[in-house]
């Protein structure tokens, strides 16, 4: 029983990390139909920036902020100066972000070296906590809390604020949104920055237990891809439940059948692709 509870909590904390990662990807896709393959690189940039800032200032929360800002800045440059030049040509945009993934990954090696590291956990969240007989790391509980908080905040933002309404209008019908006077290009840029900054945040949060190393960008990108295929691209709900499903499969797969770990994630992806190509909660394109 204890095994199941601990593994479930592990899965939940990983799911929240994945959700933060995929929320941005999904948001960007939903609004502007761009699949950002440099998304993993934003994760990487966020984590590495936090690594440097934490080493310098010894403050995890400063690292959290700086990591998000750095990833958002990368997103800004990517969207404003590169992607907007080939607006509307989806496949070229994907290939462009693909090239950026190579560039950012290699730049990170030049700046931070190729040795795998982990981020230091913030003070006060280092040890474990006793949950009625079950010992569980505090930091993972913190990740769960952050994930749920941001999830709720994003939902409130989308459903209850004027900005959220503008965003939904842009997703539903871009041309009508333009016609009623919404500055859609500015909206695109803002959402791109928001999405990549969220990814940077997930990079910093994941740093202490996933680690930071060259190649992690591709790994998290693939996980994000599986999540969006399972959950459906372009819907926040899909990103949330997709993350839960994929994280559970990954976690229990690794714990129960370690040698089949690859298949416990990718087999469900293949099944869902075969049965429902738009994903469980995806918008019909």
């Amino acid at each position: 029983m204890e095994f199941w509870i601990i593994q479930s909590l592990n899965a939940l904390s990983f799911a929240m990390l994945l959700f933060l990662l995929c929320a941005g990807l999904s948001l960007i896709f939903g609004l502007m139909n761009i699949l950002n393959l440099a998304h993993g690189s934003c994760y990487l940039v966020g984590a590495y920036t936090a690594l440097s800032v934490i080493a310098w200032s010894d403050n995890f929360f400063l690292g959290l902020v700086s990591g998000s800002v750095a990833a958002g800045a990368v997103g800004f440059v990517l969207q404003r100066f590169l992607l907007q030049r080939i607006y509307g040509r989806r496949l070229l945009q994907v290939l462009l972000t693909f090239g950026c993934m190579f560039i950012l990954g290699d730049l990170a090696i030049i700046i931070w070296g190729a040795d795998p590291t982990t981020l230091r956990k913030p003070e006060g969240l280092t040890g474990a906590v006793d949950l009625g007989g079950i010992i569980f790391p505090k930091y993972r509980l913190f990740v769960i809390a952050v994930g749920i908080t941001i999830g709720i905040a994003l939902w409130l933002f989308q459903e209850k604020t004027k900005w959220g309404a503008i965003l939904r209008a842009g997703v539903d019908d871009e041309q009508m949104a333009r016609a009623v006077g919404i500055n859609v290009p500015a909206l695109f840029t803002v959402v791109f920055i928001l999405g990549t900054a969220l990814t940077g945040l997930s990079g910093v949060l994941g740093g202490p237990f996933v680690g930071v190393y060259p190649g992690v960008d591709l790994e998290v990108l693939l996980l994000a891809v599986v999540v969006i295929i399972v959950g459906g691209l372009g819907s926040m709900k899909g990103a949330f439940f997709g993350s839960l499903i994929v994280a559970s499969l990954d976690n229990f797969g690794k714990a129960l059948f370690p040698e089949l770990a690859m298949f416990t994630i990718f087999a469900p992806m293949a099944i869902i692709l075969a049965v429902k190509p738009t994903g469980l909660w995806g918008r019909v394109l």
Binding site: L92, L95, G99, C100, I103, D106
Partner: peptide, 16 residues
């Protein structure tokens, strides 16, 4: 030996 950067730039330039 940073070939990937070059490959990435080649991608970006080709696309643009």
């Amino acid at each position: 030996d940073r070939w990937l950067i070059v490959l990435g730039f080649a991608y970006v330039c080709t696309v643009l």
